[in-house]
């Protein structure tokens, strides 16, 4: 099953590119000209998202540097111990929505400290693999079209993250505890 999925992951991009180009040639689309016309947008998009990225990434870097996340993890630890959640996975739960590289770093720490087959490694792996860095996605996608009034988008993202954490803890408890 994994092998098939890995094979699909490897082949999907080449297949998409070949299909698009072949269809273009058949339909007599000037593929080189259209490609360069579309590619021009790449630079503009990257420049356009910089202000939004700076706002989000700087604020979150400051928060991580201040030690506030460790403090919050300490405060929450007694509550979460009741739900059979290892304390070392707490920072990951908090950072997951804020910073992709931060979450990856914490996950590596948990995996290296806890060892390969520790319960907390499994829980951390499932939490990391099952969600996306909410604030990064918001900054990039809304930044690219210049939207600064996000309405309920953050609530949806954060609530989905929270439900994901609850689901990860429950599933992990059922399967590995």
């Amino acid at each position: 099953m994994t092998k098939i999925l890995n094979l699909i992951s490897l082949w999907i991009l080449p297949v998409i590119i070949l299909t698009v180009l072949t269809c273009g040639i058949i339909k007599k689309v000037p593929v080189y000209e259209e490609f360069t016309k579309g590619a021009k947008g790449g630079f503009q998009v990257a420049v356009k998202i910089i202000p939004y990225l700076v706002a989000v990434i700087v604020a979150i870097s400051m928060l991580r540097a201040s030690g506030a996340i460790e403090l919050l993890a300490q405060l929450l630890a007694p509550v979460l111990a009741k739900f059979n959640i290892p304390a070392d996975t707490l920072p990951l739960m908090i950072v997951r929505s804020l910073s992709g590289s931060g979450a990856l770093g914490i996950f590596s720490d948990i995996a290296n400290n806890g060892g390969a087959d520790a319960y907390s490694t499994k829980l951390a792996a499932i939490m990391l693999g099952s969600s996306e860095t909410t604030f990064y996605v918001l900054a990039v996608y809304f930044g690219a079209v210049g939207i600064s009034k996000l309405r309920y988008a953050v609530w949806v993202g954060l609530l989905a993250d929270f439900i994901g954490i609850v689901a990860a803890v429950s599933v992990c408890n059922l399967m590995f505890a």
Partner: peptide, 16 residues
């Protein structure tokens, strides 16, 4: 980004 936007432009023009 430039690469995929280029591919997307072809995909759009060819009706995919």
């Amino acid at each position: 980004m430039a690469f995929w936007l280029g591919i997307m432009e072809i995909a759009k023009k060819s009706g995919i």
